[in-house]
Amino acid sequence: MKTWLRISILYAVLIIVGCNTANNQQELEEEEEQEGPSTEQPLAEHEGVGNEDDRLAVEHEFTKEFLVGTDVEPGFHQMRGKLDGFEMLIPENAIIPSMLHVIENNKIETLIYAAINNNLEKKQYNVQVIYQSKYPQELKQNYLNVFKDEMGFEDEYVRVETNDLEIYYGKVDDKDKYGPVLKYFGYLFSKEQNQAISYEFMAMCQGKDECEISLEEEAEVAEKLMYSIRLLDS
């Protein structure tokens, strides 16, 4: 992926999170000014306070262009790339910023989306996929080696075959000053055609707030999204 696009991921996510937080804060201040101080007790976290952004995907103009099915299962929609080369699940609270979608030479499609959880959980995850309609099969091992280096992965890939795909995947657990960080990734190759797609998932704390992240639970989400990928006939 191009360097400028890698750098822009962080800025896009910060913009999304910042706008979300600022809008919520402004609305709260306006309500307090109109209604005066509230006498109600705040709801506890375990009571499941909802988030007004839970259905961002179907409301975001650019993201809607990718959706081919809504509510295909609880919490998820179905999306398809603009080159009609792949489909996968996308969380209902995720958006695809237009600046983070690129098509090169009508052969390679890069797409990144950010899913923001509610403000109580203070966490988010980002997903990046790079689809190649044709890749040089003789360079397959080189692709895997370079991808491993990019991910900072020193172990061996886990290899599985499913849904006419050959998948190589791994994960890296880390921690920054705000909390745990999970990086889950895979390279998926079509067994029938020389199509390929790389997949990256990263879970982290939202903004500059500390949070608790279950690496096991986030890995389950990452795995679910990866296994939802289907390479379509080109």
Rank of each mutant, 00 (worst) to 15 (best):
M1W: 01
T3C: 10
R6M: 04
S8P: 02
A12V: 05
V13E: 10
V17W: 03
V17N: 05
G18V: 02
C19L: 10
T21G: 02
T21D: 09
Q25D: 10
E33K: 13
E35M: 15
G36P: 05
L43K: 09
L43E: 11
L43M: 14
H46I: 03
E47H: 11
G48T: 03
G50L: 09
E52M: 12
D53V: 04
R55C: 10
R55I: 12
R55H: 10
L56T: 07
A57G: 08
A57Q: 04
E59S: 14
H60R: 15
K64V: 11
E65F: 06
E65S: 07
E65N: 11
E65M: 12
F66K: 01
L67D: 03
D71R: 14
D71V: 11
P74W: 07
M79K: 00
M79R: 01
R80L: 12
D84C: 09
D84N: 11
F86Q: 00
E87Q: 14
E87W: 03
I90F: 05
P91F: 08
E92G: 15
P97N: 02
P97K: 03
S98H: 15
M99G: 02
M99E: 07
L100C: 12
I103Q: 01
I103V: 13
E104S: 12
N105L: 15
N105K: 15
K107P: 01
K107A: 08
I108S: 01
E109H: 07
E109V: 04
T110S: 04
I112Y: 00
A114T: 13
A114P: 04
I116P: 01
I116R: 03
N119F: 12
N119S: 10
Y125K: 01
N126P: 03
V129W: 08
V129G: 02
I130N: 00
Q132V: 08
S133N: 15
Y135A: 05
P136N: 10
Q137G: 08
E138F: 07
L139K: 08
K140L: 13
K140P: 07
K140F: 14
N142F: 13
Y143G: 06
L144E: 01
V146A: 08
K148V: 04
M151I: 01
M151L: 06
G152C: 10
E156H: 04
E156N: 11
V158A: 06
R159E: 14
V160K: 11
E166H: 09
G170V: 01
D174K: 05
K175A: 08
K177N: 12
G179C: 05
P180K: 15
P180E: 04
K183V: 09
Y184Q: 06
Y184F: 13
Y187I: 07
S190V: 10
K191I: 07
Q193W: 10
A196R: 04
I197S: 00
C205D: 03
Q206C: 06
K208E: 09
D209L: 04
D209P: 00
I213S: 01
I213M: 00
S214V: 04
L215N: 06
E217Q: 14
E218H: 14
V221E: 09
M226L: 11
Y227A: 03
Y227H: 13
I229N: 11
I229H: 09
L231I: 14
L232Y: 14
S234R: 13
